[in-house]
Design a protein around this nucleic acid. Sequence first.
DNA 1: GATGTATGACTAATGGCATTAGTTACTCTA
DNA 2: TAGAGTAACTAATGCCATTAGTCATACATC
Lengths: 193, 193
Amino acid sequence: MGRKAGITLESVVEAATAIADRDGLDAATLTAVADELGIKTPSLYNHLEGLSGLRRLLAIHGSQLLLKTFEEAIGDLEGTEALRSIAQADRQFAREHRGLYDSFLPAPKPDEDTELYEAMAEPVFLVAHVLLDMGIPQSEAIHLIRALRALLHGFLDLEAREGFGMPVGIDASFDVAVELIIGGIEAAAASSR
Amino acid sequence: MGRKAGITLESVVEAATAIADRDGLDAATLTAVADELGIKTPSLYNHLEGLSGLRRLLAIHGSQLLLKTFEEAIGDLEGTEALRSIAQADRQFAREHRGLYDSFLPAPKPDEDTELYEAMAEPVFLVAHVLLDMGIPQSEAIHLIRALRALLHGFLDLEAREGFGMPVGIDASFDVAVELIIGGIEAAAASSR
DNA sequence: GATGTATGACTAATGGCATTAGTTACTCTA
DNA sequence: TAGAGTAACTAATGCCATTAGTCATACATC
């Protein structure tokens, strides 16, 4: 056979995303993706660089989708209202796109994969802007953003793994946790005014 | 050959731990562990139930080691001092025992593996006691413990993956993040008195 | 001390997955 | 319309986990 199935990079990513979000990132094997697309596994190598290439594409795609999600979550909001909205949006993203969420956990070094690194940095920049707009100096903002990222990531990761035990009151726990960090951010903003 | 190499469950866990902490959890394959012990891979099945069994043993071992680490970190300390010490100990544990730390991330359901579940719950109970001893009612403590766990796990996971970008000032970021949560815990304790 | 059973090692074989090499057919351009 | 590139393919390799079946040795029992 010559060329036949109209496989595009987009269709590969789409198929892989569907599998990863449904059955987990590890289920998005080259074999599974190829099956889904109706081609043989080696044919995928015409489009990407093996499994690591697929993971990379998922990470870029996921980062872009997360960025869009954050942008919509912020909308016209500012300050703590924007942060609250981002937190909720992040949680919803992690629930709806488990595979994509997991795909951008292994962070690349800035110099070894610039495109991926920048894609993953975009959502962080967006949040950073919110803090800077609140008047928090960069030297403080960097710590607070890391705290917020850590809390969100840790919560969503534990939640996905059912690491909290009884799922009772998890929504409330999330709100409490987010408010703790936002409280700290608010305090930093207040003392910078 | 009949029986020869004096393989015990302890020596298997020890070998697997060494590999996992050095090269990552994924590197602790049955093949690698068997090689390390000087036996063939299938022989391991006389001691444990395949790869999932090995992971389980690592998770139990890791949880017990973490518990001991927390106990030593607390020592005679109470309240926020104890929490600060636990946070630092947790971070050090994650750095020294990357493989073990990752091994107890996939949480089992309480009823499907009671032994593992309880081993993993012990360190959480220990922290819970600190909060309860501070006079925080259980209904509030549950949220605060989840927040603390989420923050610590998220931070250590992101740090291990170099997800924070530039490693500049990470120690300070960790302290800021921990203090934010501890501040919230302190406030809850104060309002309960 | 002989015997017999359970243990803990082994070899052999299977299957899933990623990967590489080499092949072929189709499509599009010159 | 001929040639070049593309995108599929088959075939083969290697790593890993896993299962089945074998066999020697250690230990307990008589």
